[in-house]
Amino acid sequence: MTDTRQTSTEKSLSKHPNTSNVTSTMDSSSPYFVHHSDQPGHVLVPTKLNGSNYPSWSKSMIHALTAKNKIGFINGSIEPPSETEHSTEYALWNQCNNMILSWFTHLVEPNLTKGVIHAKMARQVWEDFKDQFSQKNAPAIYQIQKSLASLSQCMMAVSAYFTKLKSLWDELDTYRSIPACNLMKAHIEQREEDRMMQFLMGLNDTYSGVRSNILMITPLPNVRQA
C-alpha cells in the first residue's frame, strides 16, 4: 500500500519534466527550491500523529517545515498559482505541495492516512488535522497540571527536579495559545513568577533558608537564575 502511494506521488512530481531543471538553478532561499535530499518518503519528525499527540506533533512539524522553507504551503502564505496563466510557477508549487502531502502520509498513523491520500492541498490536510485534534486539550492539560501540583523534589537532585519540572512546563506550553504581541511581556513575566513559585514549593525543607532568601529578592529572579 505504501509503495502505491509513493508511485502516485512520484508520478505527480514528474508530471512536469522541466521542473527539476528549474529547481537545480533556483536560489535555495526560494520556497519552491527542492533539495536533493527532499524525497517523498523522507521522515521529517520522529513521531507519527496519532491524534492525542497533536500539540507536540504539530509544533515539531512547524519547526521542520520552517527549516525547509515550506511553512508557507500549510499556513496559507503561498497560494497556488494559476495553472493556465503561470504554468511554470504552478508546476513548481505542485511539486512542493505533493512532496509535503507525501511527507504527511509517512508522518501519521495508518488510520489517518486516508485523509491525506485523497487530499489535493497540503494546507487543507493541515487545517483538517487542526480542526480534528486541537480542541481535545482539557484532559491533557488536567493531567499535566495534576503532575505539576504533586511534583516535589524528594530524593531527586535539584537539577533532576528542575529538569522534570521544565519538561512538564514545556509540554503544557504546547497546549497554550500565544498571546498578542502587546501582551507578550506581561504573559512571560507572570509565567516566570508562577514557575518560580512551583519550583520553590517543591523543594525539600533543607532548602528553606535559600527559599526565603530568594523570595526576598526584588524583582524575583527567573527559575534558571534561582
Rank of each mutant, 00 (worst) to 15 (best):
Q143N: 11
R123I: 07
L148H: 06
W57P: 01
A91E: 02
S147A: 09
A180R: 12
N182R: 13
G76I: 04
V108R: 00
I217V: 14
Q225D: 14
H35D: 08
I117F: 12
T174I: 02
L13M: 15
G72K: 02
R123F: 02
R5K: 15
P80Y: 05
T25P: 00
A180N: 11
M156C: 00
I214R: 04
A119E: 04
W169A: 05
R211Y: 06
W126L: 05
D205Q: 14
V125Q: 04
T7E: 09
Q132S: 15
P110K: 14
P139D: 15
Q95V: 08
Q124Y: 06
K164H: 09
S56P: 02
S208R: 13
Q135G: 15
T163K: 10
L215W: 06
F133M: 12
R224V: 11
H36V: 08
L151M: 09
A140L: 12
F199G: 05
T19H: 09
M1H: 10
L101I: 08
Y142L: 14
C154P: 00
K114R: 13
S14N: 14
K166W: 04
S77A: 11
A119W: 00
S58W: 00
I100Y: 00
Y54T: 05
T174H: 09
T163M: 03
N98G: 06
L13I: 15
Q6E: 10
V210E: 10
M99N: 03
F73H: 03
Q145I: 05
N97W: 00
F162G: 00
S159W: 03
Y175C: 05
V210H: 10
S56L: 09
H16P: 00
A119L: 06
P219V: 10
T2H: 13
Q190W: 03
R5Y: 15
A149N: 12
T19R: 12
K11V: 14
M155S: 13
P179W: 01
L200Q: 05
K164E: 08
S12F: 06
E89Y: 09
